[in-house]
Design a protein around this nucleic acid. Structure first.
Length: 218
DNA sequence: AAACAACGCAACCGCGGCGAC
DNA sequence: GGTCGCCGCGGTTGCGTTGTT
C-alpha cells in the first residue's frame, strides 16, 4: 500500500498565502511553538495542510531569515559545497544562517547553473565541459565580452574577472575546495551540529519578543 | 502601447527516512 | 520485523514580474 496523503485535501486552501493567513500562522507559532505540524492548521484555524504551513514558515515567515541577494562570497561557497555534497540543499543551506534550502536551490537553478555553464563547467559534475553546445555558445559570449551576451548567458557585467578567477579555481578544484573547506569547516559533523544549535527552535524562540515586536494579542 | 518571451520565486508534490507502536 | 504516520527533502510547476520586440 502506498502512503496516505499528508492531509485530507478536501476543503483545504492552496496557492499563495494571504497576509491574514501569514499573521494567523505566525501568531500561533510564536505563542504555541511547533509540537506537530499536522496540528498547527487545526489549532490555528487555518484551512491549510500541515505541510503547507511548515513550508510557509520555513521559507518565508521565520524571523531569522536573511533577505536580499546572494553575495559573490556566498555564491562561491555554494559552489564549493555543491561540489562536495551535490544537490543536498538542506545540508548546503545549513551553512548559511538565515538562508533556506529552497532559496539556495532556486538561486542555483536560476543563476549559478548558468554561470557555471558559461564558464565551461558542468554544474552537475563540476568538471570542465568540452565541445558541447553550451560551452561553445558560452565561449562566444565570453570572447566577444559583450555585456548583452554575458547577461543573456547569465553573467553580469562585473564578471569578466570572475570568469578567469573561477576558471583558475576549477583547474585545481580538488585542492582548492578541500583545503578551503577544511579551513572553514574543520569537521563536517561539528559544523553541522553547530548550525543545528544556531537554528534550533529553543534558541530562537527565546529571543522572539525582541525579534518580533508586533501585536501579540491576535 | 501591446504582445510575447524569459526569468525568478513561492508553493506544491511525491518520496524516503525514521520513530512509535 | 512489519506497519503506520509524520517530517523533511529534492524535483517540479505555476504565476507574477521584467525585459524585449
Amino acid at each position: 500500500m502506498g502512503r496516505q496523503p499528508c492531509c485530507d485535501k478536501v476543503g483545504l486552501k492552496r496557492g499563495p498565502w494571504t497576509i491574514e493567513e501569514d499573521q494567523k500562522l505566525m501568531n500561533f507559532i510564536l505563542h504555541n511553538g511547533i509540537q506537530c505540524w499536522r496540528l498547527v492548521p487545526k489549532l490555528s484555524g487555518l484551512l491549510r495542510c500541515g505541510k503547507s504551513c511548515r513550508l510557509r514558515w520555513m521559507n518565508y515567515l521565520r524571523p531569522d531569515l536573511k533577505r536580499g541577494a546572494f553575495t559573490e562570497a556566498e555564491e562561491d561557497q555554494i559552489i564549493e559545497l555543491h561540489s562536495r555534497l551535490g544537490n543536498k540543499w538542506s545540508k548546503i543551506a545549513a551553512q548559511f544562517p538565515g538562508r533556506t534550502d529552497n532559496e539556495i536551490k532556486n538561486h542555483w537553478n536560476t543563476r549559478i547553473k548558468k554561470k557555471l555553464k558559461a564558464l565551461g563547467i558542468d554544474p552537475l559534475t563540476h568538471n570542465r565541459i568540452e565541445n558541447t553546445e553550451d560551452f561553445e555558445s558560452a565561449k562566444e559570449a565570453t570572447a566577444s565580452n559583450s555585456s548583452e551576451n554575458l547577461l543573456k548567458n547569465g553573467i553580469s557585467s562585473r564578471e569578466p574577472d570572475a570568469v578567469s578567477d573561477m576558471t583558475l579555481r576549477t583547474d585545481k578544484s580538488e585542492s582548492f575546495s578541500s583545503s578551503r573547506m577544511d579551513e572553514t569547516f574543520p569537521q563536517d559533523e561539528h559544523w553541522i551540529d553547530n548550525m543545528d544549535y544556531l537554528l534550533s527552535w529553543d534558541g530562537f524562540t527565546s529571543n522572539l519578543e525582541e525579534i518580533f515586536p508586533f501585536d501579540s494579542h491576535l
